[in-house]
């Protein structure tokens, strides 16, 4: 199935887990915020959350400066 991740199209297996997508981005520095269809997914749910065809995943670094 096909999903969108950070503006890229990805071909992934059915029932692909969110955490497997995040692992592709683990070279990013810092704490990650991850959203599926614009909703932020708490870190403790990354493992269990599965993705569906057409889902939009956004992975970005959380900033804390000010």
């Amino acid at each position: 199935m096909r999903i969108h991740c950070n503006d890229e199209q990805l071909e992934v297996p059915e029932d692909c887990s969110l955490v497997s997508i995040i692992q592709r981005f683990n070279e990013q520095e810092g704490a990650l915020a991850v959203a599926v269809n614009q909703t932020i997914i708490p870190t403790s749910r990354w493992q269990l959350q599965t993705l569906e065809e057409g889902d939009v995943v956004d992975i970005f670094t959380l900033v804390a400066g000010g």
Binding site: G30, A31, L32, I41, T61, L62, A64, G65
Partner: peptide, 21 residues
Amino acid sequence: PEYNSEQSLTCFEQGIFSPVV
């Protein structure tokens, strides 16, 4: 969201552009 806080970025590490803040 239970962010992994130990790894968050501050202005010390990344710098900051004044219009952004």
